[in-house]
Every structure is written in structure tokens, then in C-alpha cells.
């Protein structure tokens, strides 16, 4: 389905994508990487927006650059919002379907159907300027789905969606994948991709660091220190407590925040309420976010550089 051979993209002296070689068979794939890792550049190359500085790209056997026949079979939802604020979602999606080659009547039907699919049927005749972020994301997805492409390429499509919106669009995409169509889904959030596919591509620093299933990714994460930050009433006592319990590899205290690196986060999450109750320490904030993922990327980068 997608074939990249030693693809490098340079922006002047900055490397966007670095010697990327990859072959993807039809199916659903998650492109996972932190912000600035080169995901969008890679998608721009795959959709023919950019020309590789080196290497070759084939999508469904064809070069994507200025390829009209390929664009008929491809749906793309870019990361950025690119709306005409004074136009309704319906008019915009219809317009894009006409550009796709549909007649006005067919585009009418396709736009209505697609917007209904993403849950926008009630608001689709309102100007886009009146939409929430989530509604805009739904509209973006609708324009990519409307012409029923064979391959769907999505760049952070769940960004700005509330949990209900994420669930609804996940269902839409799962149904779509169940039809046997292909999907390439870029995100920096592991569980977003995990909810859609078990096949991952890990990208960082413009390089393909690893690929495999969700289990492979989790296996890679085992044994990597997980960083957790606590904001609390008595950071020194909390630090002392965590050290005494021997659950942290390292610890630092800045103002009221204790940041720990641990290989056993599950034990901390399980026992922390009890420890806090007995010690009387108040924890007001706790962050882990995707630090584990970042740790994974950092470790993989070190492996690539031969530092591990």
C-alpha cells in the first residue's frame, strides 16, 4: 500500500524525515511520535505535498506527487484547520467533493451522508466560524471520508475532541477499517492509536525507530523509568516516604513539586492513597501524561545512536 525507500526530506539544513524505509501492506496503522517528530512531514510526503530530497515514495504503486488518479483513491485529513469561516460545513464538504470530480448532485449526497456519519447533520448548515473545535475536527474528517477513498490518512484527527467525540469518531473509523479499507493514523497519544489499530510505527527525530503491535510497544516500555510529578503540601516528607518505600529510581524536588522516576509505577498508583492517608500529606496535582512514551522514544533514540 505504501512504500518508502530511503526517503529523506531536508528543509534547508534541517532534517524533517531521515532515511525512512518502510513497506506497509493494506490495513490500519498508527504513526506514533511526539510533537515535532516528523509525523506531519512524513504524511505530507505520502500525500504528495512535498517532494523527497532523497529516496522514492510509492502509494498504491504510484508516485503521489501531482497524481490525480491517486488522489481519487485517497482521503486526507491534515493536522491544521483550513476552513472558510463564512462557509457552512455542508458547502465546504460539497465543494471539496466537486473538486474530487463529483457532479454537484453527487457531491450534495456525499457531503450530507458524510457529515451525518460524523455527527454533524444538525449543525452542517451553520457557518464554520460558529463551530467548536470538536465540530471542526468532525468536519475535517467528513471531507476526507466523503468520497469513499481506499486509503485514509489522518493527522491528529482527535485533537480537541471531548471524550464522547473521541469515542464516536473512533467507532466511525473502526467501522471504516472493518470494511477492509486502509488507514494511516498519526498521533502523539498512544491510547488514541491503540483504540483503532494494533499496528504501530514509532517515529522520532524524523526516523522510524520501531514498528510492531501494541504488545511490542508495551514490551519495549517495560523496564523503562516512568516519570511522575506530584504537587503536594509537604514535598520533602513525600520524597522521604517514597524513598523509604524503595519505589523510585531517582527523585527531585522543586518548590512544591516532587518529580520521581520509577520502574514500578503500578505500585505507586496502588499504594499512594494509603501512604498519603497515614502521613497526612495532601497531593493537589499528579502528572504522568505520556512521559512513559517519551521515555520510550528517548531510549529508542539512544539505541539508534549506540548509547544503549
Amino acid at each position: 500500500m505504501i512504500e518508502l525507500s530511503n526517503v529523506t526530506k531536508m528543509y534547508g539544513k534541517v532534517i524533517g524525515v531521515n532515511d525512512f524505509t518502510l513497506t506497509l501492506q493494506p490495513g490500519a496503522y498508527g504513526l506514533l511520535g511526539p510533537n515535532g517528530s516528523g509525523k506531519s512531514t512524513l504524511l505530507n510526503l505520502i500525500t504528495g505535498q512535498l517532494r523527497p530530497t532523497q529516496g522514492t515514495i510509492r502509494v498504491m504503486g504510484e508516485s503521489p506527487r501531482n497524481n490525480a488518479s491517486l488522489f481519487r483513491r485517497m482521503g486526507y485529513c491534515p493536522g491544521g484547520e483550513g476552513f472558510y469561516s463564512d462557509v457552512s460545513a455542508y458547502d465546504w464538504v460539497k465543494y471539496l467533493q466537486q473538486l474530487q470530480g463529483m457532479t454537484a448532485a453527487d457531491a450534495d449526497v456525499a457531503a450530507g451522508r458524510s457529515l451525518e456519519l460524523v455527527g454533524m447533520s444538525t449543525a452542517m448548515h451553520r457557518p464554520i466560524s460558529s463551530y467548536s473545535r470538536g465540530m471542526r475536527q468532525r468536519t475535517k474528517l467528513a471531507q476526507a471520508l466523503a468520497h469513499n477513498p481506499e486509503i485514509l490518512i489522518l493527522d491528529e484527527p482527535f485533537s480537541g475532541l471531548d471524550p464522547i467525540g473521541r469515542h464516536e469518531l473512533t467507532t466511525v473509523l473502526l467501522d471504516w477499517v472493518d470494511l477492509g479499507k486502509s488507514l494511516l493514523f498519526a498521533s502523539h497519544v498512544l491510547h488514541e492509536i491503540e483504540s483503532l489499530t494494533q499496528s504501530f510505527l514509532l517515529i522520532c527525530g524524523g526516523r522510524l525507530l520501531a514498528s510492531g503491535t501494541a504488545e511490542d510497544v508495551h514490551a519495549m516500555m517495560v523496564g523503562l523509568p516512568n516519570e511522575i510529578a506530584f504537587k503536594c503540601s509537604d514535598p520533602h516528607r513525600l520524597g522521604e516516604l517514597l524513598l523509604r518505600e524503595r519505589v523510585v529510581d531517582s527523585l527531585r524536588i522543586v518548590d512544591a513539586t516532587v518529580t520521581v522516576a520509577t520502574r514500578d509505577p503500578a505500585r505507586i498508583y496502588g499504594q499512594l492513597p494509603g501512604w498519603l492517608k497515614t502521613s497526612g500529606i495532601d497531593v493537589t496535582e499528579m502528572h504522568s501524561a505520556d512521559e512513559s512514551l517519551q521515555a520510550l522514544f528517548n531510549s529508542l533514540m539512544k539505541m539508534h545512536r549506540g548509547e544503549l
Binding site: 500525500t47 505535498q49 490525480a68 488522489f71 491534515p78 491544521g80 484547520e81 483550513g82 476552513f83 473538486l99
Partner: peptide, 21 residues
């Protein structure tokens, strides 16, 4: 105008989209 609005990419991933625009 399309680049500033970030709408260009939506138009150019269509068959001959840029030329049509």
C-alpha cells in the same frame, strides 16, 4: 490567501486540485 487560511492542503489533495483552484 489559501496558505494563510491553511486551506491549501485540502484543495491540493484533490485530482488536479491546485490547477483547478
Amino acid at each position: 490567501a489559501e496558505l494563510e487560511r491553511r486551506s491549501w492542503v485540502y484543495l491540493t489533495v484533490r485530482p488536479n486540485g491546485g490547477t483547478a483552484v
